[in-house]
Design a protein around this nucleic acid. Sequence first.
DNA 1: GGTTAAGCGAGACGGTACGTCCGGTCTTATT
DNA 2: AATAAGACCGGACGTACCGTCTCGCTTAACC
Lengths: 211, 211, 211, 211
Amino acid sequence: MRYMSLKRMTESTNPQPSAGAARRRNPDTQKRILEATLQLVSDRGYSRLTIEGIAARAGVGKATIYRWWASKGALVLDALAQVFPTFTAPDTGDPDHDLTTLIDSVAATMNEGTYAISIPQLAAELSSDPELADEFFVRCVLPNRITVLHFFDRLIDAGTLDADTDIEFLADLIVSIVFFKTLILHRPVGTSYTGDLANLILRERLPRTSG
Amino acid sequence: MRYMSLKRMTESTNPQPSAGAARRRNPDTQKRILEATLQLVSDRGYSRLTIEGIAARAGVGKATIYRWWASKGALVLDALAQVFPTFTAPDTGDPDHDLTTLIDSVAATMNEGTYAISIPQLAAELSSDPELADEFFVRCVLPNRITVLHFFDRLIDAGTLDADTDIEFLADLIVSIVFFKTLILHRPVGTSYTGDLANLILRERLPRTSG
Amino acid sequence: MRYMSLKRMTESTNPQPSAGAARRRNPDTQKRILEATLQLVSDRGYSRLTIEGIAARAGVGKATIYRWWASKGALVLDALAQVFPTFTAPDTGDPDHDLTTLIDSVAATMNEGTYAISIPQLAAELSSDPELADEFFVRCVLPNRITVLHFFDRLIDAGTLDADTDIEFLADLIVSIVFFKTLILHRPVGTSYTGDLANLILRERLPRTSG
Amino acid sequence: MRYMSLKRMTESTNPQPSAGAARRRNPDTQKRILEATLQLVSDRGYSRLTIEGIAARAGVGKATIYRWWASKGALVLDALAQVFPTFTAPDTGDPDHDLTTLIDSVAATMNEGTYAISIPQLAAELSSDPELADEFFVRCVLPNRITVLHFFDRLIDAGTLDADTDIEFLADLIVSIVFFKTLILHRPVGTSYTGDLANLILRERLPRTSG
DNA sequence: GGTTAAGCGAGACGGTACGTCCGGTCTTATT
DNA sequence: AATAAGACCGGACGTACCGTCTCGCTTAACC
């Protein structure tokens, strides 16, 4: 294995609500809360989200929410994680096509309304709550990161990439740039950009200006 | 000029408080408010910042703050912009040294307490307030981006980089990765990482694993 | 009989929990609940008493309490009634001594911590719940009132009081003044006051100022 | 002066809201709050009164109520004190008539809806809040007690009562019995009862049964 | 140099949401 | 079948800040 530096692969500490005596939660109630949360976070964004609003929308007492989630951040994270996609990398034999498709699917996710609105604000929350950050990493980031690393593994096996290529760097590279472009700069990542990235990775060639 | 795609170089809309009849503002009062804001944002972070707290700390009425700034975001941005550094690129003739120094200074800024705490939360705010985002870009990002682009200009003039290199891509690349590593993943950007980036830019060589 | 205007001598409606099918109640459980109630009402007073607190202290489910008592008032009343004293009037042949002893024992009860704390607050509850008021009357007031009336009967038989004395008025007089002094004004009823009352009753002589 | 044992004649500590810097209250707001409080306490009784309900009815923020009153009890007391009557004793020369009129007016007040509902519950509150009890005494009880004592003074001057009669006892007697009969037992104090009391006071004659 | 409009501190105010407590009902598992 | 445990909805609690709004006071600008 080439990427076992995934040391943060802690098991999820998530909705197990502390107590030893296995409190019995009502699955229907939980579902209604998570759905209401997703609805409202899409509609209004994380910062205008209120626990009262969620409770009202879900037809639930506020205390029920506080019983099972420690904070607004934990609730939103849980709700997002339920629906956050896990992409799969195609394997057509054409590395250029496969890689651009993979990058596009990452970019598409970042651009999707719900995530575009909620992730920057959630990221702000995570930056002051390491436990929550870990949970986000484990539940949303890690599965996809593994997909990407497996993909590069395949390229190495096929001889497209050198065996000693730092594929974790490549994963970071893709995610950083796509994250920054879409969520911070709010600029679309178009096909030309995707091609530049693929070119950089497959042929170690930095992009040139068209002019 | 190779990077005149800086089309967002709008003039600052900032503390001009709309009104036509030149209001007489007390510079001392403004200073106390901005200082109090910086203090508190460093101590507690953006989200726990309150206008009341700033007013109290500055010994100022709340209305005075509302008179001059449209929102908490505008105030914090203004306060940060007063102290946000403008890096300068060294020019020793050794491209590797100059470039790693430049990247290090960007990374150092991102790691400094005040910015590490406030920028992710401010970024969240910016993502739902385009005008504020523009102002941030113009006052904090643009000057440094110009520095970086000038630096790459020099490398082109010296023949270190090809004349048609997409230096805007290079600037994005550095900022994206440093931003992501430090502010999102909270991982330090050490010398090895800096070297990898310099290597990639100066020699178009992706990093390899040590093992 | 001289005082059969006790028309409110309704039978207790109390802890018969309505239902037809003779529920088998666990006597130990009931006892633990009543004891916890008494404890807590003494410690914290009626208004800071909570059903949850009682259930926790008694090691009992809340539903068990609701099953057997209709309200917090009914529960507290039941608990108090278990321990509320029934005084006995002495019969030494000295009317002054016997009467002052009797009044003192009423006053002493009113001053006892548990009752001093709980009775005013219970009285407030009774004033908006006639059924509960009736129960309180029958279980706590009536037995003692009968004792007092019997006592006055004896004084009439002994010729100390006229045969047509309105002994219900006398009973009201004693209770009213002692209740008001101790529970409303929080002023002790000392021996001088007790003597004044005895003097008024036995010799129809209003008290004079000492000076 | 025959009754200067009114030692509790402390000056009101009431709505002077602590701070030295004389916070400026809006009289209109205060009036709306007090009116809403009176309305609701008459309608629903003290215990079903909520601060939220008062705020809503008065069109006021909850915080405004909490700013000026320390507790529900203090607010209700303030509201009641605004409208609590101050009786005047008639002086026709006929002591029997004057005294029965005076007692009747006390009884009538106790029977009036608003007071009948709120006073027992307020009394319960007072029994665990000595400061509030003092304020109630000073603002509602004391003025009327002085009236009663002045009345008995006149009777002494007129020779109707002995000069050394303990008129404070007489005042207690009237209030105790009327309070107890009306507010605790919820029994009306009719003309026959009033007459008995007057007879007891003016002629030192305990009542006899009619039969 | 006196007037006057502004900036300003202080903080009252109507609101919204917070996070907590408890009431009273209902479900599940245990005894 | 009664119980303990406790989840659940709902309503109110008392608090923190929001952004707006008077108040007087001070101070600079223009008569």
